[in-house]
C-alpha cells in the first residue's frame, strides 16, 4: 500500500498580484522515501506546501495526493497525510493531550486508541512530561514539538513537513532527524522543506531544488552530488583524527598527490582540499587510511550539497 503513496504537483502556479511565487511547478514523488525540498528564502517552498495542503489556492495547475485532487477533494486527499506547515499555534488553553485528542478525534482515530497514540507521539517528540500542561506557557521549540506530534498522531502514510526544525535547539534538530529516519523505516513518503543542508544530507534520499518558483533539479542525493561534482573542481572535507597530527603524518599529507592543501582546524581535525569530485574523495579516503595518521571520520557530503546549492541558486543574486 505504501509503495503507491504519491504527491504530484502538476503545472502548479501561484501569483500574488504581480509576484509569481510559483511558476508551473511539475513534481512527482512516489514510493517510500524522504525528499528534501530546498531553496532560498522566497523560492516558493512554503507556497508549494501550502498549495499541497489547500491552505492557499493555485492560480493555475493542481496537486494530487495518492491520485486525489487536493483542490477538488481536500478531505479525501489529506486523509492519509500528516501536515506541518509554517509553525502553527495551538489554542493556549489546551494541553498537548487535549490538542492531540482534538486532532485524533477529527481524523477519526478510535477513542480507544487515543491514549496509546498520543503517548507514543509525545514520547517520540520528548514531550511526555508536559502532556497535561497548558500549551500557552510553552516555548516556541516546545510548541513545534507538539506540532510535529500532531502531524504524526494518526500514523500517516505521507508526511509533509515545512521547516520542521524551526525553533528547535540542536538536540531537538537531532530528534527530528531521528523521527524522519523512523518514518523512513516504516515505509512512509516524507516531503520536507529545510534550510539546513546537513539535515537534508543526513536523512533525505532525494532532493528537489527550487528558486524563484521554478524547479531547478530533482534527483537522488547521490546522483545530484555525482552529477555536479566536477572532476577538475576543488572540494573541501573535514577529517577527524583519533590523535593530534605529528610531523611524520604532516609529511605524508604534504607528499600525497591526492591533496591540494590542508590545514589543522583543531589538533584532531583537518580541513583538506582535494580535486576529482566523488572519485577523488574515494581515493583520498583510501590514501588517508593507508597513511595511518589515525583517521576516524571524513565529512564532506554536506559541503558537496552546499556547493551544488550555491552553484545552482547563485551566490546571493
Amino acid at each position: 500500500m505504501t509503495s503507491s503513496s504519491s504527491i504530484v504537483m502538476d503545472g502548479l502556479t501561484k501569483r500574488f498580484g504581480q509576484l509569481t511565487a510559483l511558476d508551473h511547478l511539475d513534481l512527482k514523488l512516489e514510493g517510500s522515501k524522504c525528499v528534501g525540498f530546498l531553496g532560498p528564502n522566497g523560492a516558493g517552498k512554503t507556497t508549494a506546501l501550502k498549495l499541497l495542503s489547500d491552505m492557499i489556492f493555485p492560480t493555475e495547475g493542481e496537486c494530487f495526493i495518492n491520485g486525489i485532487s487536493v483542490q477538488e477533494e481536500r478531505k479525501k486527499a489529506l486523509a492519509e497525510v500528516g501536515l506541518l506547515i509554517e509553525t502553527p499555534e495551538i489554542y493556549p488553553s489546551l494541553t498537548p493531550r487535549e490538542a492531540l485528542g482534538m486532532i485524533a478525534d477529527l481524523r477519526g482515530v478510535p477513542h480507544s486508541e487515543w491514549n496509546a497514540r498520543i503517548e507514543t507521539v509525545l514520547s517520540e517528540v520528548k514531550m511526555m512530561e508536559w502532556a497535561d500542561k497548558k500549551v500557552g506557557s510553552f516555548s516556541k521549540g516546545m510548541k513545534q514539538r507538539i506540532n510535529i506530534a500532531a502531524s504524526l498522531v494518526h500514523d500517516p502514510e505521507i508526511v509533509i513537513l515545512d521547516e520542521p526544525a524551526t525553533g528547535l535547539d540542536p538536540r531537538g534538530m537531532a530528534e527530528v532527524r531521528d523521527i524522519v529516519r523512523s518514518l523512513k523505516k516504516r515505509n512512509r513518503l516524507i516531503f520536507m522543506s529545510s534550510h539546513i543542508l546537513q539535515e537534508v544530507t543526513d536523512v533525505c534520499d532525494e532532493i528537489a531544488l527550487i528558486d524563484k518558483g521554478k524547479l531547478l533539479l530533482y534527483d537522488t542525493l547521490a546522483n545530484t552530488i555525482a552529477r555536479f561534482s566536477d572532476a577538475g573542481a576543488q572540494s573541501t572535507v573535514d577529517a577527524g583524527l583519533s590523535r593530534p597530527l605529528d610531523s611524520q603524518g604532516e609529511g605524508k599529507l604534504k607528499t600525497s598527490g591526492d591533496i591540494v592543501s590542508f590545514e589543522s582546524v583543531e589538533p584532531t581535525r583537518l580541513r583538506i582540499t582535494f580535486k576529482g569530485g566523488m572519485k577523488g574523495q574515494e581515493k583520498l579516503l583510501q590514501s588517508l587510511v593507508a597513511m595511518d595518521i589515525g583517521i576516524v571520520s571524513l565529512s564532506g557530503r554536506a559541503n558537496a550539497l552546499e556547493d551544488i546549492y550555491l552553484q545552482q541558486i547563485g551566490r546571493g543574486d
Partner: peptide, 14 residues
C-alpha cells in the same frame, strides 16, 4: 492572526 488556523487546517476538514 493567532495562527491557530494553521493547526486546524492541517486536518482533513472543510
Amino acid at each position: 492572526q493567532n495562527r491557530t488556523g494553521y493547526f486546524l487546517m492541517s486536518v482533513p476538514i472543510r
